[in-house]
Amino acid sequence: MIRYLPHPVPTVSFLLCIIISGFILTTGVKYLLSVLLLLFFAFHINGKKILLTILKIVIPLCIAIGLFMTFIYPETERWVTIGGMRLSHEGLTAAGDMTSRIIFLFTGIIAFFNLITIQRLGSYLYQKNLPVWLVFILINGLKFVDRFRAKLNEIHFYQQIRGMPLENVWQKWRATVKILIPLLYVMIEESSNRAIALEMRGFTATAQRTALQPDIQTTTDKLITFVFFGFIILLLVFGFIV
């Protein structure tokens, strides 16, 4: 088990590196790197979670794309027969290219969000003197979704009691409006009360902020950032030359 949870800076540079190399590297290299990434994360703290997410999201998508590309590819000129099935050669190549990119990018992005919590990212941005409201939105966005869902279920329950048939389009529209109006009313009303509270807590203050716990990067963090940025530069240089 690797117990290293990195600093936001190397993590974000990792994400940048993944996104840029996802569009530059060749198919084979991307497959290889994806397998290496997966192996690396298999031994990580959140390894199981990462692998499960990839199984749930990436694999069905790749299978769908593979099937789609190999069977319906109108531009086909060469056909190959595998196991009695006539498949498009160009389609297979395109599918390989696309799936490699998806597996690589998605693995990287899922890993990124498991390496760092939104809270950690937000608190780093806070210390880098980004506006405090931006940090507030970033951190509270997901928390508010839970509130939204709780309220939604509540209102849905009560509207069902009042009777909410869902048979035709008109009834569905009525139901949507009947649920969304009280839901958004509650959320907006709450948000305007929250606005007063946050104003009173000093969210509009113009003074230079101080930080209780300054965020310090370790040498490992700096080294990792350096390696990733070096890799990005190499990729860009070779990508454009080749």
Binding site: Q119, G122, L212
Partner: peptide, 23 residues
Amino acid sequence: MLISGVKDTVFGEIALSLELIGV
């Protein structure tokens, strides 16, 4: 409403009020 949730500890949350005004 008064708890912003920007910090992940109670100590940090209370300290935020003072950090914002530059203490």
